[in-house]
Computed example of a mutant assay.
Amino acid sequence: MRKILTTLLITAGFCTAAFSQTKGTTEFGINVGYNGATVTAGNLTNTDYKSGFNAGVSVEHYFSESWSFKTKLLYDQKGWDNGFYGTKTTNYSLNYLTVPLLANWHFGRTKNWFLNFGPYVSFLLAASESAGGQDVKPYFNTVDGGLDLGIGIKFPVAEKTKFFIELNGQGGVTDIGKNNSGSSIKNSLSSINIGLTF
């Protein structure tokens, strides 16, 4: 996991260095959205979707009319409902700080449609279960990583301001359970987001 995190940070550093040497437009954004989260694991049968939200900020740098690089800093609510905690059925709430590193392809006649894809890394802020109100953060790894994919459209609302709607999905590739002896538990997330870029 440290190698993945190191690779992501090095990539972010190179992209930041490239920004300072590349002429183009840079947009800043804010967003908020609804999360539908669950986990995938071979030995877990109770993994219903859990509702939550996300909110964050973004920076997007255009290298051409069709391509840009975008990174976000998001507060992400994940977890799953109808899980087990000992012999009890409970809901798990996992709160993360998520950083996606995304390549954006802009398409359509006016280039207002976009498709983004790339890796993400998440840092666990808090973890709890609802049946007993227990803090379960010690049972989870503090870093999660995976792949992020999204599609959306922007609508100009002012000279330099655009409103956007985005459908987004994340698929974890790392085990979020600490010292897990069974099948690995991986985060899965679908979200719908709205926001502004300027």
Rank of each mutant, 00 (worst) to 15 (best):
L94T: 12
Y96N: 03
S68Y: 02
T142S: 10
L73N: 00
L149W: 03
S64K: 05
V99D: 04
P156F: 04
I151S: 00
T142G: 07
L124S: 02
L102I: 12
K78R: 15
N112Q: 14
T90H: 07
I153Q: 06
L101V: 15
P119R: 10
T71G: 03
K88R: 10
V143S: 00
I151R: 01
L73A: 08
Q77W: 09
P100R: 05
D81H: 08
G150A: 14
P156I: 12
F155I: 13
E129A: 10
L147C: 01
K137D: 02
V157N: 00
L115D: 02
D148V: 05
V143N: 02
L101Q: 08
K137H: 04
E129C: 10
W67M: 09
S93A: 14
S68K: 00
S68V: 06
V136A: 04
T71N: 06
S122Q: 05
E60H: 02
L125Q: 10
E65W: 01
F84A: 14
S122R: 00
W67F: 12
L149H: 00
D135K: 06
A158Q: 04
P100I: 05
L94Y: 11
G146L: 01
T90N: 10
L102P: 03
L97H: 01
S93K: 15
D76W: 09
I153H: 00
L147H: 07
P138C: 04
H106Q: 11
L101M: 10
F155T: 05
D76H: 13
F63Q: 05
V157E: 04
S66H: 14
T87A: 07
F107W: 12
L115H: 02
A131S: 13
A103I: 15
G152C: 06
D144S: 06
D81Q: 13
F117I: 14
N91S: 15
Y120S: 10
P100C: 03
D76N: 14
H106R: 13
V157T: 09
G86P: 05
